[in-house]
Amino acid sequence: MTVQEWSIVGAVVAVCFGAIGPAFAEGRAIASAMDAVARQPEAGGTISRTLFVGLAMIEAIAIYCLVIALVLLFANPFVH
């Protein structure tokens, strides 16, 4: 296979497997937050705000994988 074809495979693998970890992490975070809100509804505002910031942090990992995939597809340093 040429470098271009390997790059496409690499991009697909990066996005597929890079999304698994953050997906589990976000699921756990949201489950814990809902648990906390159910136990203590009056703290809902603080919990959901912290949750949003935390989700943004977790999501950044998936976004890094997307960036790697885009670099492989559109700005590949090994393809001239």
């Binding site: 943004a56 942090m57 999501e59 950044a60 976004i63 890094y64 997307l66 960036v67």
Partner: peptide, 13 residues
């Protein structure tokens, strides 16, 4: 960098 990439990745994707 993460701030930049998060916004870009979400909107562009």
């Amino acid at each position: 960098f993460a701030l930049m990439m998060r916004l870009l990745g979400n909107v562009m994707s």
